[in-house]
Design a protein around this nucleic acid. Structure first.
Length: 520
RNA sequence: CGGGAUGUAGCGCAGCCCGGCUAGCGCGCCACGUUCGGGACGUGGAGGCCGCGAGUUCGAAUCUCGCCAUCCCGACCA
Protein backbone atom coordinates (compact mmCIF):
# COMPACT_ATOMS: atom_id res chain seq x y z
CA UNK A 1 0.00 0.00 0.00
CA UNK A 2 1.11 3.53 -0.70
CA UNK A 3 0.27 6.76 0.94
CA UNK A 4 -0.64 9.29 -1.63
CA UNK A 5 -0.57 12.92 -1.29
CA UNK A 6 -1.73 15.55 -3.54
CA UNK A 7 -1.19 19.15 -3.62
CA UNK A 8 -3.98 19.90 -6.00
CA UNK A 9 -5.99 18.38 -8.77
CA UNK A 10 -3.58 19.56 -11.39
CA UNK A 11 -0.73 17.61 -9.94
CA UNK A 12 -2.95 14.63 -9.54
CA UNK A 13 -4.16 14.64 -13.08
CA UNK A 14 -0.65 14.73 -14.41
CA UNK A 15 0.58 11.87 -12.33
CA UNK A 16 0.64 8.89 -14.56
CA UNK A 17 2.33 6.30 -12.43
CA UNK A 18 0.15 5.39 -9.51
CA UNK A 19 2.23 2.53 -8.34
CA UNK A 20 4.78 5.01 -7.21
CA UNK A 21 4.76 6.50 -3.76
CA UNK A 22 3.51 10.03 -3.89
CA UNK A 23 3.99 12.67 -1.22
CA UNK A 24 1.55 12.47 1.62
CA UNK A 25 -1.36 14.83 1.50
CA UNK A 26 -4.19 15.71 3.66
CA UNK A 27 -7.18 16.57 1.55
CA UNK A 28 -8.10 20.16 1.77
CA UNK A 29 -10.91 20.83 4.13
CA UNK A 30 -14.31 20.80 2.51
CA UNK A 31 -15.34 23.50 4.94
CA UNK A 32 -18.87 23.91 3.76
CA UNK A 33 -19.57 27.56 3.36
CA UNK A 34 -22.32 27.51 5.94
CA UNK A 35 -20.73 25.38 8.62
CA UNK A 36 -19.11 26.88 11.72
CA UNK A 37 -15.79 25.72 13.10
CA UNK A 38 -15.30 24.69 16.70
CA UNK A 39 -12.98 27.59 17.36
CA UNK A 40 -15.38 30.16 15.92
CA UNK A 41 -18.44 29.08 17.84
CA UNK A 42 -18.59 25.71 19.50
CA UNK A 43 -22.33 25.78 20.23
CA UNK A 44 -23.13 26.76 16.66
CA UNK A 45 -20.77 24.10 15.35
CA UNK A 46 -22.66 21.47 17.33
CA UNK A 47 -26.07 22.63 16.12
CA UNK A 48 -24.94 22.81 12.50
CA UNK A 49 -23.44 19.37 12.76
CA UNK A 50 -26.57 17.72 14.12
CA UNK A 51 -28.73 19.29 11.46
CA UNK A 52 -26.45 19.05 8.44
CA UNK A 53 -25.36 15.50 9.20
CA UNK A 54 -29.05 14.62 9.17
CA UNK A 55 -29.16 13.33 12.73
CA UNK A 56 -32.10 15.31 14.06
CA UNK A 57 -34.05 18.52 13.69
CA UNK A 58 -36.32 20.70 15.75
CA UNK A 59 -39.98 19.85 15.53
CA UNK A 60 -43.18 21.84 15.47
CA UNK A 61 -43.36 21.22 19.21
CA UNK A 62 -41.09 23.50 21.18
CA UNK A 63 -38.26 21.63 22.86
CA UNK A 64 -39.00 18.35 21.13
CA UNK A 65 -36.85 16.94 18.35
CA UNK A 66 -37.38 14.72 15.37
CA UNK A 67 -34.67 12.09 15.29
CA UNK A 68 -33.99 11.46 11.62
CA UNK A 69 -33.20 8.05 10.14
CA UNK A 70 -29.43 8.47 10.19
CA UNK A 71 -29.43 9.67 13.78
CA UNK A 72 -31.89 7.03 14.84
CA UNK A 73 -29.73 4.33 13.26
CA UNK A 74 -26.90 5.33 15.60
CA UNK A 75 -29.27 5.25 18.57
CA UNK A 76 -30.45 1.79 17.53
CA UNK A 77 -26.87 0.55 17.52
CA UNK A 78 -26.39 1.97 21.00
CA UNK A 79 -29.59 0.32 22.14
CA UNK A 80 -28.61 -3.04 20.70
CA UNK A 81 -25.23 -3.05 22.43
CA UNK A 82 -26.59 -1.90 25.79
CA UNK A 83 -29.59 -4.19 25.63
CA UNK A 84 -27.32 -7.17 25.14
CA UNK A 85 -25.18 -6.11 28.09
CA UNK A 86 -28.27 -5.87 30.29
CA UNK A 87 -29.59 -9.24 29.15
CA UNK A 88 -26.19 -10.83 29.66
CA UNK A 89 -26.29 -9.72 33.28
CA UNK A 90 -29.71 -11.19 33.93
CA UNK A 91 -32.04 -8.29 33.25
CA UNK A 92 -35.35 -8.49 31.38
CA UNK A 93 -37.23 -5.82 29.50
CA UNK A 94 -40.78 -4.78 30.37
CA UNK A 95 -42.96 -1.76 29.74
CA UNK A 96 -44.79 0.54 32.16
CA UNK A 97 -47.31 3.31 31.39
CA UNK A 98 -46.52 6.77 30.07
CA UNK A 99 -48.98 8.28 32.56
CA UNK A 100 -48.48 8.44 36.29
CA UNK A 101 -51.29 9.32 38.71
CA UNK A 102 -50.42 12.59 40.38
CA UNK A 103 -50.77 11.09 43.84
CA UNK A 104 -47.99 8.56 43.12
CA UNK A 105 -45.45 11.24 42.55
CA UNK A 106 -45.92 12.79 45.97
CA UNK A 107 -45.33 9.57 47.90
CA UNK A 108 -41.57 9.99 48.03
CA UNK A 109 -40.84 13.46 49.37
CA UNK A 110 -37.43 14.15 47.80
CA UNK A 111 -38.51 12.64 44.53
CA UNK A 112 -41.52 14.90 44.07
CA UNK A 113 -39.51 17.94 45.06
CA UNK A 114 -36.93 17.14 42.43
CA UNK A 115 -39.32 16.68 39.57
CA UNK A 116 -42.44 18.75 40.33
CA UNK A 117 -41.17 21.86 38.55
CA UNK A 118 -40.80 20.17 35.21
CA UNK A 119 -43.82 17.91 34.81
CA UNK A 120 -46.32 17.92 31.96
CA UNK A 121 -49.81 17.24 33.27
CA UNK A 122 -52.85 15.72 31.57
CA UNK A 123 -56.04 17.22 32.92
CA UNK A 124 -58.74 16.34 30.36
CA UNK A 125 -59.57 13.43 28.12
CA UNK A 126 -61.76 14.96 25.42
CA UNK A 127 -62.00 17.81 22.94
CA UNK A 128 -65.07 19.35 21.36
CA UNK A 129 -65.94 21.78 18.58
CA UNK A 130 -65.63 25.38 19.69
CA UNK A 131 -68.88 27.24 20.26
CA UNK A 132 -67.96 29.86 17.69
CA UNK A 133 -67.33 27.09 15.19
CA UNK A 134 -63.64 27.93 14.89
CA UNK A 135 -61.54 24.89 15.68
CA UNK A 136 -61.67 22.65 18.71
CA UNK A 137 -61.35 23.35 22.42
CA UNK A 138 -60.87 21.32 25.56
CA UNK A 139 -64.18 19.92 26.77
CA UNK A 140 -64.40 21.18 30.34
CA UNK A 141 -66.91 18.46 31.10
CA UNK A 142 -64.20 15.89 30.49
CA UNK A 143 -61.96 16.80 33.40
CA UNK A 144 -60.02 13.92 34.92
CA UNK A 145 -60.85 13.01 38.48
CA UNK A 146 -57.12 12.71 39.15
CA UNK A 147 -54.64 14.41 36.87
CA UNK A 148 -52.03 12.28 35.16
CA UNK A 149 -48.38 13.22 35.01
CA UNK A 150 -46.44 12.32 31.91
CA UNK A 151 -43.53 10.35 33.34
CA UNK A 152 -40.35 12.32 33.97
CA UNK A 153 -39.00 8.94 35.20
CA UNK A 154 -40.85 5.82 36.26
CA UNK A 155 -39.83 4.95 39.82
CA UNK A 156 -43.25 5.67 41.26
CA UNK A 157 -45.43 3.71 38.86
CA UNK A 158 -42.94 0.86 38.89
CA UNK A 159 -42.67 0.62 42.65
CA UNK A 160 -46.43 0.77 42.95
CA UNK A 161 -46.48 -2.23 40.61
CA UNK A 162 -43.64 -4.08 42.33
CA UNK A 163 -45.65 -4.13 45.58
CA UNK A 164 -47.83 -6.79 43.99
CA UNK A 165 -44.98 -8.69 42.44
CA UNK A 166 -42.88 -9.16 45.54
CA UNK A 167 -43.88 -11.21 48.57
CA UNK A 168 -40.94 -13.40 49.41
CA UNK A 169 -37.17 -13.39 49.15
CA UNK A 170 -37.79 -15.99 46.44
CA UNK A 171 -39.18 -13.21 44.21
CA UNK A 172 -35.87 -11.38 44.48
CA UNK A 173 -33.84 -10.05 42.91
CA UNK A 174 -36.19 -8.47 40.42
CA UNK A 175 -34.12 -7.15 37.51
CA UNK A 176 -36.18 -5.10 35.05
CA UNK A 177 -35.30 -2.59 32.36
CA UNK A 178 -37.52 -0.55 30.11
CA UNK A 179 -36.83 1.37 26.91
CA UNK A 180 -39.09 4.38 26.90
CA UNK A 181 -39.61 8.06 26.33
CA UNK A 182 -39.87 10.52 29.20
CA UNK A 183 -40.80 14.19 29.42
CA UNK A 184 -39.14 16.89 31.47
CA UNK A 185 -40.39 20.37 30.72
CA UNK A 186 -37.07 22.13 30.24
CA UNK A 187 -36.70 25.88 29.80
CA UNK A 188 -33.82 25.80 27.39
CA UNK A 189 -33.32 22.85 25.11
CA UNK A 190 -30.61 21.63 22.73
CA UNK A 191 -30.82 18.80 20.26
CA UNK A 192 -29.92 15.53 22.00
CA UNK A 193 -28.28 17.26 24.97
CA UNK A 194 -31.45 18.50 26.56
CA UNK A 195 -34.88 18.07 25.02
CA UNK A 196 -38.31 18.18 26.60
CA UNK A 197 -38.98 14.63 25.48
CA UNK A 198 -36.15 12.15 25.24
CA UNK A 199 -35.59 8.45 24.75
CA UNK A 200 -33.79 6.38 27.31
CA UNK A 201 -33.60 3.14 29.15
CA UNK A 202 -34.38 2.96 32.83
CA UNK A 203 -33.50 -0.06 34.92
CA UNK A 204 -35.35 -0.70 38.15
CA UNK A 205 -34.22 -3.51 40.40
CA UNK A 206 -35.30 -4.86 43.77
CA UNK A 207 -33.05 -6.80 46.15
CA UNK A 208 -33.25 -8.50 49.51
CA UNK A 209 -30.10 -6.93 50.93
CA UNK A 210 -28.42 -3.58 50.92
CA UNK A 211 -25.12 -5.11 49.83
CA UNK A 212 -26.68 -6.77 46.83
CA UNK A 213 -28.38 -3.54 45.75
CA UNK A 214 -25.13 -1.60 46.00
CA UNK A 215 -23.39 -4.32 44.03
CA UNK A 216 -26.04 -4.00 41.32
CA UNK A 217 -25.62 -0.22 41.23
CA UNK A 218 -21.90 -0.58 40.68
CA UNK A 219 -22.26 -3.42 38.19
CA UNK A 220 -24.41 -1.20 36.00
CA UNK A 221 -21.96 1.67 36.39
CA UNK A 222 -19.28 -0.64 35.02
CA UNK A 223 -21.51 -1.58 32.10
CA UNK A 224 -22.05 2.09 31.30
CA UNK A 225 -18.35 2.85 31.50
CA UNK A 226 -17.54 -0.16 29.33
CA UNK A 227 -20.08 0.88 26.77
CA UNK A 228 -18.82 4.47 26.69
CA UNK A 229 -15.21 3.43 26.29
CA UNK A 230 -15.43 0.34 24.09
CA UNK A 231 -18.33 1.31 21.84
CA UNK A 232 -18.46 5.08 21.87
CA UNK A 233 -14.69 5.41 22.27
CA UNK A 234 -15.32 8.05 24.93
CA UNK A 235 -13.23 7.80 28.10
CA UNK A 236 -15.24 8.39 31.27
CA UNK A 237 -14.63 8.93 34.96
CA UNK A 238 -16.62 6.67 37.26
CA UNK A 239 -17.61 8.12 40.56
CA UNK A 240 -20.09 9.30 43.12
CA UNK A 241 -22.21 12.43 42.93
CA UNK A 242 -22.17 14.99 45.72
CA UNK A 243 -25.39 15.48 47.70
CA UNK A 244 -26.34 18.48 45.57
CA UNK A 245 -26.16 16.53 42.35
CA UNK A 246 -27.80 13.39 43.68
CA UNK A 247 -30.94 11.97 42.03
CA UNK A 248 -34.12 13.01 43.81
CA UNK A 249 -34.98 10.06 46.03
CA UNK A 250 -31.64 8.28 45.93
CA UNK A 251 -29.29 7.47 48.79
CA UNK A 252 -26.27 7.52 46.46
CA UNK A 253 -25.96 8.49 42.82
CA UNK A 254 -23.04 7.17 40.79
CA UNK A 255 -22.21 8.51 37.37
CA UNK A 256 -19.95 8.33 34.39
CA UNK A 257 -18.63 11.71 33.41
CA UNK A 258 -17.01 12.64 30.08
CA UNK A 259 -15.09 15.70 28.93
CA UNK A 260 -16.18 17.39 25.70
CA UNK A 261 -13.87 19.19 23.26
CA UNK A 262 -14.88 22.61 24.53
CA UNK A 263 -13.74 21.70 28.02
CA UNK A 264 -17.19 21.20 29.48
CA UNK A 265 -18.20 18.04 31.29
CA UNK A 266 -21.10 15.88 30.29
CA UNK A 267 -22.85 13.40 32.55
CA UNK A 268 -23.30 10.41 30.30
CA UNK A 269 -25.05 7.97 32.59
CA UNK A 270 -26.26 7.55 36.17
CA UNK A 271 -26.80 4.60 38.45
CA UNK A 272 -28.62 5.09 41.75
CA UNK A 273 -28.66 3.18 44.99
CA UNK A 274 -32.15 4.00 46.27
CA UNK A 275 -31.87 2.31 49.64
CA UNK A 276 -35.35 1.53 50.96
CA UNK A 277 -36.79 4.94 50.10
CA UNK A 278 -39.18 3.77 47.42
CA UNK A 279 -39.95 0.49 49.18
CA UNK A 280 -41.10 2.47 52.18
CA UNK A 281 -43.01 5.03 50.12
CA UNK A 282 -44.84 2.30 48.21
CA UNK A 283 -44.91 -0.28 50.96
CA UNK A 284 -42.96 -2.97 49.17
CA UNK A 285 -42.02 -5.71 51.70
CA UNK A 286 -40.88 -9.27 51.48
CA UNK A 287 -40.63 -12.18 53.87
CA UNK A 288 -37.01 -13.13 54.43
CA UNK A 289 -35.65 -16.64 54.89
CA UNK A 290 -36.08 -16.32 58.61
CA UNK A 291 -39.67 -15.22 58.20
CA UNK A 292 -39.10 -11.51 58.87
CA UNK A 293 -41.09 -8.88 56.99
CA UNK A 294 -38.57 -6.41 55.51
CA UNK A 295 -38.52 -3.57 53.03
CA UNK A 296 -36.73 -4.36 49.78
CA UNK A 297 -33.61 -2.55 48.59
CA UNK A 298 -33.69 -0.78 45.26
CA UNK A 299 -31.61 0.59 42.40
CA UNK A 300 -32.41 2.54 39.26
CA UNK A 301 -30.16 3.52 36.39
CA UNK A 302 -30.38 5.12 32.99
CA UNK A 303 -28.74 6.44 29.88
CA UNK A 304 -30.52 8.56 27.30
CA UNK A 305 -30.34 9.99 23.81
CA UNK A 306 -28.00 12.47 25.42
CA UNK A 307 -25.33 9.88 24.66
CA UNK A 308 -25.75 10.98 21.06
CA UNK A 309 -24.63 14.44 22.09
CA UNK A 310 -21.60 13.00 23.87
CA UNK A 311 -20.70 10.91 20.85
CA UNK A 312 -20.97 13.85 18.48
CA UNK A 313 -19.00 16.27 20.64
CA UNK A 314 -16.29 13.84 21.63
CA UNK A 315 -14.91 13.02 18.19
CA UNK A 316 -16.22 15.27 15.47
CA UNK A 317 -14.12 17.93 13.75
CA UNK A 318 -14.49 20.97 11.53
CA UNK A 319 -15.18 18.71 8.55
CA UNK A 320 -18.22 17.19 10.19
CA UNK A 321 -19.20 14.13 12.13
CA UNK A 322 -16.67 11.48 13.12
CA UNK A 323 -18.18 8.17 14.22
CA UNK A 324 -16.51 5.23 15.90
CA UNK A 325 -16.82 2.20 13.61
CA UNK A 326 -18.72 0.18 16.19
CA UNK A 327 -21.62 2.64 16.19
CA UNK A 328 -21.51 3.88 12.60
CA UNK A 329 -24.65 2.93 10.65
CA UNK A 330 -22.52 2.75 7.53
CA UNK A 331 -18.99 1.54 8.29
CA UNK A 332 -17.69 1.50 4.75
CA UNK A 333 -18.92 3.38 1.72
CA UNK A 334 -17.79 2.51 -1.79
CA UNK A 335 -17.82 5.26 -4.41
CA UNK A 336 -17.32 4.44 -8.08
CA UNK A 337 -15.45 6.86 -10.33
CA UNK A 338 -16.46 6.61 -13.96
CA UNK A 339 -16.87 8.52 -17.19
CA UNK A 340 -19.55 6.42 -18.83
CA UNK A 341 -21.95 3.61 -18.14
CA UNK A 342 -19.65 1.00 -19.63
CA UNK A 343 -17.07 1.89 -17.03
CA UNK A 344 -19.66 2.02 -14.29
CA UNK A 345 -20.75 -1.51 -15.11
CA UNK A 346 -17.21 -2.84 -14.93
CA UNK A 347 -16.51 -1.00 -11.70
CA UNK A 348 -19.79 -2.15 -10.21
CA UNK A 349 -18.83 -5.77 -10.68
CA UNK A 350 -15.66 -5.24 -8.68
CA UNK A 351 -17.36 -2.97 -6.14
CA UNK A 352 -20.08 -5.50 -5.47
CA UNK A 353 -17.49 -8.22 -5.00
CA UNK A 354 -15.81 -6.11 -2.35
CA UNK A 355 -19.12 -5.18 -0.80
CA UNK A 356 -20.18 -8.80 -0.51
CA UNK A 357 -16.88 -9.91 0.94
CA UNK A 358 -17.17 -7.19 3.60
CA UNK A 359 -20.78 -8.00 4.36
CA UNK A 360 -19.77 -11.63 4.80
CA UNK A 361 -17.44 -10.40 7.55
CA UNK A 362 -20.26 -8.54 9.27
CA UNK A 363 -19.33 -5.07 8.05
CA UNK A 364 -22.12 -2.68 7.04
CA UNK A 365 -21.36 -1.39 3.58
CA UNK A 366 -23.03 1.02 1.22
CA UNK A 367 -22.19 1.01 -2.44
CA UNK A 368 -23.24 4.42 -3.70
CA UNK A 369 -23.61 4.09 -7.45
CA UNK A 370 -26.11 6.92 -7.78
CA UNK A 371 -25.67 8.74 -11.05
CA UNK A 372 -27.32 11.84 -9.63
CA UNK A 373 -24.34 13.00 -7.57
CA UNK A 374 -20.73 13.32 -8.53
CA UNK A 375 -17.85 11.58 -6.73
CA UNK A 376 -16.57 14.77 -5.13
CA UNK A 377 -19.99 15.51 -3.79
CA UNK A 378 -20.26 12.01 -2.36
CA UNK A 379 -16.83 12.25 -0.73
CA UNK A 380 -17.87 15.39 1.08
CA UNK A 381 -21.23 14.00 2.01
CA UNK A 382 -19.90 10.83 3.64
CA UNK A 383 -17.10 12.73 5.26
CA UNK A 384 -19.62 15.06 6.80
CA UNK A 385 -21.71 12.15 7.99
CA UNK A 386 -18.74 10.51 9.65
CA UNK A 387 -18.53 7.27 7.69
CA UNK A 388 -15.29 5.75 9.03
CA UNK A 389 -13.90 4.28 5.82
CA UNK A 390 -14.42 5.22 2.20
CA UNK A 391 -13.30 3.17 -0.76
CA UNK A 392 -13.08 4.75 -4.20
CA UNK A 393 -12.70 2.64 -7.31
CA UNK A 394 -12.02 4.05 -10.74
CA UNK A 395 -10.77 2.77 -14.09
CA UNK A 396 -7.15 3.06 -13.00
CA UNK A 397 -7.87 0.88 -10.00
CA UNK A 398 -9.39 -1.76 -12.26
CA UNK A 399 -6.20 -1.80 -14.29
CA UNK A 400 -3.92 -1.89 -11.28
CA UNK A 401 -5.96 -4.14 -9.01
CA UNK A 402 -6.12 -1.41 -6.38
CA UNK A 403 -8.61 0.68 -4.45
CA UNK A 404 -8.28 4.06 -2.82
CA UNK A 405 -8.93 3.92 0.92
CA UNK A 406 -9.70 7.02 2.95
CA UNK A 407 -10.14 7.03 6.72
CA UNK A 408 -12.35 9.63 8.34
CA UNK A 409 -10.54 10.04 11.64
CA UNK A 410 -7.21 11.18 10.18
CA UNK A 411 -8.42 12.13 6.68
CA UNK A 412 -5.53 10.11 5.25
CA UNK A 413 -5.76 8.35 1.92
CA UNK A 414 -3.86 5.30 0.77
CA UNK A 415 -3.89 2.97 -2.19
CA UNK A 416 -4.50 -0.66 -1.18
CA UNK A 417 -3.99 -3.73 -3.30
CA UNK A 418 -7.42 -5.24 -3.65
CA UNK A 419 -6.24 -8.69 -2.58
CA UNK A 420 -7.59 -9.62 0.84
CA UNK A 421 -9.25 -6.21 1.01
CA UNK A 422 -11.85 -7.35 3.54
CA UNK A 423 -9.28 -8.17 6.19
CA UNK A 424 -7.37 -4.98 5.53
CA UNK A 425 -10.56 -2.98 5.99
CA UNK A 426 -11.49 -4.81 9.16
CA UNK A 427 -8.05 -4.08 10.52
CA UNK A 428 -8.43 -0.43 9.57
CA UNK A 429 -11.83 -0.17 11.28
CA UNK A 430 -10.29 -1.58 14.46
CA UNK A 431 -7.47 0.92 14.21
CA UNK A 432 -9.91 3.79 13.85
CA UNK A 433 -11.94 2.65 16.85
CA UNK A 434 -8.79 2.50 18.97
CA UNK A 435 -7.38 5.74 17.63
CA UNK A 436 -10.54 7.66 18.47
CA UNK A 437 -10.43 6.43 22.04
CA UNK A 438 -6.75 7.30 22.42
CA UNK A 439 -7.29 10.74 20.97
CA UNK A 440 -10.18 11.43 23.33
CA UNK A 441 -8.21 10.02 26.24
CA UNK A 442 -5.18 12.16 25.47
CA UNK A 443 -7.43 15.20 25.21
CA UNK A 444 -8.86 14.52 28.63
CA UNK A 445 -5.40 14.06 30.14
CA UNK A 446 -4.23 17.33 28.62
CA UNK A 447 -7.24 19.10 30.01
CA UNK A 448 -7.21 17.79 33.56
CA UNK A 449 -5.55 20.05 36.11
CA UNK A 450 -4.62 19.85 39.76
CA UNK A 451 -5.43 23.14 41.39
CA UNK A 452 -4.62 24.18 44.96
CA UNK A 453 -5.54 27.82 45.32
CA UNK A 454 -8.80 29.65 44.87
CA UNK A 455 -7.23 32.16 42.48
CA UNK A 456 -5.90 29.40 40.26
CA UNK A 457 -9.25 27.69 40.44
CA UNK A 458 -11.11 30.74 39.15
CA UNK A 459 -8.65 31.21 36.30
CA UNK A 460 -8.55 27.58 35.26
CA UNK A 461 -12.27 26.97 35.41
CA UNK A 462 -12.75 29.70 32.81
CA UNK A 463 -10.39 27.87 30.48
CA UNK A 464 -12.35 24.63 30.82
CA UNK A 465 -11.39 21.07 31.58
CA UNK A 466 -11.54 18.84 34.63
CA UNK A 467 -10.15 20.41 37.77
CA UNK A 468 -8.95 18.20 40.59
CA UNK A 469 -9.21 20.15 43.81
CA UNK A 470 -9.70 19.60 47.51
CA UNK A 471 -13.16 20.22 48.91
CA UNK A 472 -14.33 20.33 52.50
CA UNK A 473 -17.26 18.03 51.82
CA UNK A 474 -20.04 20.51 52.56
CA UNK A 475 -22.94 21.48 50.31
CA UNK A 476 -22.56 25.13 51.32
CA UNK A 477 -19.07 25.27 49.88
CA UNK A 478 -20.11 23.50 46.71
CA UNK A 479 -22.98 25.95 46.22
CA UNK A 480 -20.78 28.97 46.82
CA UNK A 481 -18.30 27.70 44.28
CA UNK A 482 -21.13 27.19 41.84
CA UNK A 483 -22.43 30.72 42.45
CA UNK A 484 -19.04 32.29 41.86
CA UNK A 485 -17.78 30.19 38.96
CA UNK A 486 -20.72 28.14 37.58
CA UNK A 487 -18.59 25.05 38.16
CA UNK A 488 -19.98 22.04 40.00
CA UNK A 489 -18.54 18.87 41.40
CA UNK A 490 -18.92 16.47 38.55
CA UNK A 491 -17.89 13.43 40.48
CA UNK A 492 -15.93 12.02 43.38
CA UNK A 493 -13.98 9.31 41.59
CA UNK A 494 -14.24 5.73 42.79
CA UNK A 495 -10.97 4.42 44.21
CA UNK A 496 -9.94 8.04 44.62
CA UNK A 497 -6.45 8.54 45.97
CA UNK A 498 -6.62 9.68 49.58
CA UNK A 499 -4.34 12.61 50.33
CA UNK A 500 -4.25 15.27 52.97
CA UNK A 501 -5.07 18.74 51.77
CA UNK A 502 -7.14 21.85 52.29
CA UNK A 503 -10.37 22.89 50.63
CA UNK A 504 -9.64 25.16 47.69
CA UNK A 505 -12.46 27.46 48.76
CA UNK A 506 -12.80 27.32 52.54
CA UNK A 507 -9.31 26.18 53.50
CA UNK A 508 -10.74 23.53 55.77
CA UNK A 509 -9.12 20.10 55.86
CA UNK A 510 -9.89 17.60 53.11
CA UNK A 511 -8.84 14.03 52.50
CA UNK A 512 -9.24 13.76 48.75
CA UNK A 513 -9.53 15.72 45.53
CA UNK A 514 -12.83 15.85 43.66
CA UNK A 515 -13.51 16.70 40.03
CA UNK A 516 -14.85 20.16 39.26
CA UNK A 517 -15.97 21.43 35.85
CA UNK A 518 -18.57 23.46 34.09
CA UNK A 519 -21.12 21.06 32.77
CA UNK A 520 -23.76 20.57 30.09
C1' C B 1 -41.05 34.56 34.02
C1' G B 2 -37.40 39.05 33.17
C1' G B 3 -33.79 41.46 29.04
C1' G B 4 -32.75 41.64 23.56
C1' A B 5 -33.89 40.49 18.54
C1' U B 6 -36.34 38.38 14.27
C1' G B 7 -40.73 36.76 11.11
C1' U B 8 -40.36 37.81 2.86
C1' A B 9 -39.94 30.64 -1.94
C1' G B 10 -37.63 24.25 0.92
C1' C B 11 -33.03 26.86 3.31
C1' G B 12 -30.11 31.55 3.91
C1' C B 13 -31.07 36.58 3.03
C1' A B 14 -31.93 41.78 0.46
C1' G B 15 -35.91 45.24 -0.09
C1' C B 16 -38.81 48.49 4.81
C1' C B 17 -36.09 54.60 7.26
C1' C B 18 -37.93 57.66 2.21
C1' G B 19 -45.27 53.69 0.41
C1' G B 20 -45.74 53.23 -6.36
C1' C B 21 -44.43 49.05 -12.47
C1' U B 22 -44.76 41.92 -12.78
C1' A B 23 -41.27 41.45 -4.90
C1' G B 24 -35.56 40.22 -5.89
C1' C B 25 -30.69 37.43 -4.91
C1' G B 26 -27.72 32.93 -3.45
C1' C B 27 -28.24 27.74 -2.43
C1' G B 28 -31.51 23.87 -3.29
C1' C B 29 -35.40 21.82 -6.78
C1' C B 30 -37.15 20.23 -12.24
C1' A B 31 -35.72 19.46 -17.79
C1' C B 32 -31.98 18.98 -21.56
C1' G B 33 -26.85 18.93 -22.94
C1' U B 34 -21.63 18.78 -21.81
C1' U B 35 -19.13 16.65 -17.44
C1' C B 36 -17.46 12.75 -13.61
C1' G B 37 -10.04 10.54 -9.34
C1' G B 38 -12.34 16.17 -3.73
C1' G B 39 -18.81 19.71 -3.25
C1' A B 40 -18.98 20.72 -12.15
C1' C B 41 -20.87 24.07 -15.98
C1' G B 42 -24.34 26.04 -19.64
C1' U B 43 -29.35 27.00 -21.21
C1' G B 44 -34.35 26.88 -19.95
C1' G B 45 -38.06 26.32 -15.96
C1' A B 46 -41.17 25.63 -11.38
C1' G B 47 -41.87 27.65 -6.75
C1' G B 48 -44.53 33.63 -2.56
C1' C B 49 -51.93 34.82 1.89
C1' C B 50 -44.15 39.38 2.34
C1' G B 51 -46.28 35.67 10.38
C1' C B 52 -51.83 36.89 11.52
C1' G B 53 -55.71 40.75 12.15
C1' A B 54 -57.34 45.61 12.00
C1' G B 55 -56.25 50.74 10.52
C1' U B 56 -54.12 55.06 7.44
C1' U B 57 -53.90 55.75 1.98
C1' C B 58 -55.86 56.32 -4.79
C1' G B 59 -52.14 52.53 -3.58
C1' A B 60 -48.95 48.82 2.04
C1' A B 61 -43.71 43.75 2.31
C1' U B 62 -42.83 49.07 3.44
C1' C B 63 -46.43 53.62 7.93
C1' U B 64 -49.76 52.87 12.84
C1' C B 65 -52.04 49.65 16.55
C1' G B 66 -53.00 44.80 18.37
C1' C B 67 -52.03 39.64 18.37
C1' C B 68 -49.15 35.20 17.40
C1' A B 69 -44.69 32.58 16.72
C1' U B 70 -39.57 31.70 16.87
C1' C B 71 -34.47 32.58 18.29
C1' C B 72 -30.59 34.53 21.66
C1' C B 73 -29.12 35.99 26.99
C1' G B 74 -30.47 34.86 32.42
C1' A B 75 -33.02 31.52 36.80
C1' C B 76 -34.07 25.22 36.35
C1' C B 77 -32.04 20.57 34.45
C1' A B 78 -30.26 13.61 32.24
Amino acid sequence: MFKINWVNNFLFLHHKNFDKKVPKIIPKSIMAKDFSTRAENYAQWYNDLVIKADLAENSAVRGCMVIKPYGYAIWEKMQAALDKMFKDTGHSNAYFPLFIPKSFLSKEADHVEGFAKECAVVTHYRLKNADDGKGIVVDEDAKLEEELIIRPTSETIIWDTYRNWIQSYRDLPLLINQWANVVRWEMRTRLFLRTAEFLWQEGHTAHSTKEEAIEETLKILDIYADFAEKWMAVPVLKGLKSANERFAGAVDTYCIEALMQDGKALQAGTSHFLGQNFAKAFDVKFLSKDNQLEYVWATSWGVSTRLMGALIMAHSDDNGLVLPPKLAPIQVVIVPIYKNYGQLNEISIKANEIKNSLIAKGISVKYDDRDTQKPGWKFSEYEFKGVPVRLAIGPRDLENGTVEVARRDTLEKEIYQITDIENKVIHLLDQIQVNLYHKAYAFREENTYRVDTWDDFKVQIEKGGFILAHWDGTSETELKIKDETKATIRTIPLDNKQEVGFCVYSGRPSKERVVFAKAY
